[in-house]
Design a protein around this nucleic acid. Structure first.
Length: 391
DNA sequence: TCTGGGGTCCTAGGACCC
DNA sequence: TCTGGGGTCCTAGGACCC
């Protein structure tokens, strides 16, 4: 084990400002200045949640994750628009390409944010990176017409918190020395990795701010959260994080799911349910083929009307990207789901992905056939050089 | 008629192997 | 015969993120 003294680093976290809403405003400039919320089908009478709201809409209390109906109650004059992922992906590619003109040390963190490792940029140690950040903001604006906020720090954890401190269009530097004054007063929820459940448990321990968490005895955190999460909480609260910027990764799973307009009964509404499952299987198969993957583990997910989630899955002898094979396995899984309540959501997932290369067997069976050698180690896409144990 | 869709990672128990 | 350990795979659930 090498000692974990990492060299000096300068990490940026770049976050696009109100991304979906800002993209929509490029197409609908007449809506600028008005409260606008993006989500679902763009009709508050139908099921769906707000994904992004303009700053004008946020002033009415509208937040992402809020039911569209509730948002319409808070702000009757709000303009609702449906999500258009294809368009957002186009802009996502554009802003990431603009960043790539500065460095290729970019970690993709979804459609509207990235980490950037600026450690090797000339002069970065002298000026701490603010000029580079302003340059990146300018390039993103030129390429897309959109603004972004950037946090600069010695690691990803602090950079992420920093990017949120001055929005929109801000640049914020947070160094180790700034942690007590700038980070510790913030609520624990600002740490990426502390969600609603952990927040509740911490509150239960009397810990509301990151500073209180940093001062908490490690033994208390270990007892409450276990060795892994407990020690991570302690490190995070003290601003320590050695995770590298990861510039490439392989997908682990692909899935499709849908929420019904009205809840369906597993037996009484079997026809529409079966049709839906078959369609989801076709969509996942088509996603797999388009991106060049096949998977061995097929699963279904249902959400009951009380919001409980149940999953069932099945691992095949070989990887597949065929709709018919996925469908057979998915129906078997659905058959094992208890028909206790109505369903509001149905989903299909394929995991255990391998690149669907030329040698990949297309003849996945659900029988007892030994798995093809190539399908033995789906978890290790980068392990081309290590030979599997002799069969 | 509150509460989307697409992901990742972790945990934990049982099966099975050495 | 009994005890015990490590390691991997499979399955199910859950927290969290964008």
């Amino acid at each position: 084990m090498p000692a974990s003294t990492t060299p000096w680093r300068r990490i940026a976290h770049l976050d696009m400002d109100a991304f979906y809403a800002s993209v929509e405003l490029l197409r609908r400039p007449e809506l600028r200045g008005q409260p606008v919320a993006i989500g679902g089908h763009g009709e508050p009478s139908r099921r769906g949640v707000v994904t992004t709201a303009t700053y004008e809409a946020r002033a009415f209390g509208i937040r992402s994750g809020m039911a569209l109906r509730r948002a319409a109650e808070l702000c009757p004059q709000c303009v609702f628009l449906p999500v258009d992922f294809d368009e957002y992906r186009r802009y996502s590619r554009r802003f990431k390409a603009a960043i790539a003109t500065v460095t290729d040390r970019i970690e993709d963190r979804g459609i509207d944010e990235v980490y950037i490792d600026l450690s090797a940029v000339p002069g970065i140690r002298v000026d701490h990176g603010a000029p580079v950040a302003r340059d990146i903001q300018h390039r993103v604006l030129q390429a897309t017409g959109l603004t972004c906020s950037i946090g600069l720090a010695p690691n990803k954890l602090l950079a992420k918190i920093a990017s949120d401190l001055r929005k929109p269009a801000g640049v914020t530097i947070v160094d180790e020395a700034d942690v007590p004054a700038v980070i510790w007063p913030l609520p624990v929820r600002r740490i990426s990795g502390i969600g609603p459940k952990a927040e509740l448990q911490l509150e239960d321990l009397g810990l509301r701010t990151i500073g209180e968490l940093a001062a908490a005895p490690l033994s208390m955190l270990l007892a409450r959260f276990g060795a892994n999460y407990g020690s991570w909480l302690h490190e995070a609260a003290n601003g320590r994080d050695e995770r590298p910027v990861v510039t490439s990764s392989e997908p682990v799973s692909m899935s499709r799911e849908t929420t019904f307009e009205r809840d369906l009964h597993l037996r009484r509404d079997w026809q529409p349910l079966a049709a839906c499952l078959a369609e989801l299987c076709r969509e996942v198969a088509s996603d797999l083929r388009r991106r060049g993957y096949a998977g061995r583990t097929i699963g279904v997910k249902v959400r009951y009307d009380d919001f409980r989630i149940v999953t069932r899955d099945q691992t095949l002898a070989g990887a597949t990207d065929e709709a018919a094979t996925i469908r057979r396995a998915a129906f078997e899984c659905l058959g094992r789901v208890p028909a206790t309540r109505r369903l509001r959501l149905l989903g299909v997932r394929v995991a255990g992905l391998t690149r669907a290369g030329a040698t990949q067997a297309r003849t996945a069976t659900d029988g007892r056939a030994p798995p093809p050698a190539g399908a033995q180690q789906p978890q290790l896409p980068l392990s081309g050089e290590d030979s599997p144990l002799a069969l």
